[in-house]
Every structure is written in C-alpha cells, then in structure tokens.
C-alpha cells in the first residue's frame, strides 16, 4: 500500500480524474473530500462490505429456503395470482 503524509488542504491524485483531499484533521477523525467522475462509485468501505455480505446471504437464501415466495406472499397478505399463465408467460 502506498502511504502518504498529507496536511490539511493537501490532496493526492489517482489517475487523472480522482482527487482525494484532506479537509480537516480532528482528534477522532479525518474529514476527506473525494472528487471523482460520475462513472466511479465511491462508498464508505464498511457500507460496501455490509452490502456485499448481505448479497452473499441473499444468494444463499435462494437455495436454502424451500418456499420463500409462499412465505413472503403470506407476510404481505397477497393472495396467489390465478394460475392462468405458466413458466415465463411466453
């Protein structure tokens, strides 16, 4: 990992489009500004990790739970739709 020492208002560049700037240094944290093209998604690491973990659990749910659809339907108080169409309705 590259390590830089930066003071307040100093920045680093990643490629030619991403700038990471130290806005404020406090006792408990550092305030950082990120300027990046709209095509680059920027997230707090722990939020990304949470969503990643949740996605993995959700993917496992497909195989683990026998009749999730029926359970969801019951909880949403939705009656099953009439069985007029089958498969992919093609």
């Amino acid at each position: 990992m590259l390590v830089f020492t930066r003071k307040r208002d100093e920045a680093i560049m990643i490629g030619d489009g991403i700038e990471i700037r130290v806005l404020r240094v406090g006792r408990d944290g550092v305030r950082i500004g990120v300027q990046a093209p709209a095509s680059v998604s920027v997230h707090r690491r722990e939020v990304y990790d949470q969503i990643r973990d949740e996605n993995r659990i959700a993917a496992a749910a497909v195989n683990a739970a026998g009749n999730v659809a029926a359970e969801v339907r019951k909880r949403l108080e939705r009656p099953a739709p009439p069985v007029a169409a089958t498969g992919t309705d093609r």
Partner: peptide, 12 residues
C-alpha cells in the same frame, strides 16, 4: 429477471 406464478410477487 425471471417471473412465474409460483414466485409472485417475487422475481428471480
């Protein structure tokens, strides 16, 4: 994105 009567209101 797949749909079927058994899955509704869910999709796969």
């Amino acid at each position: 994105l797949l749909s079927s009567p058994e899955l509704a209101p869910l999709h796969l």
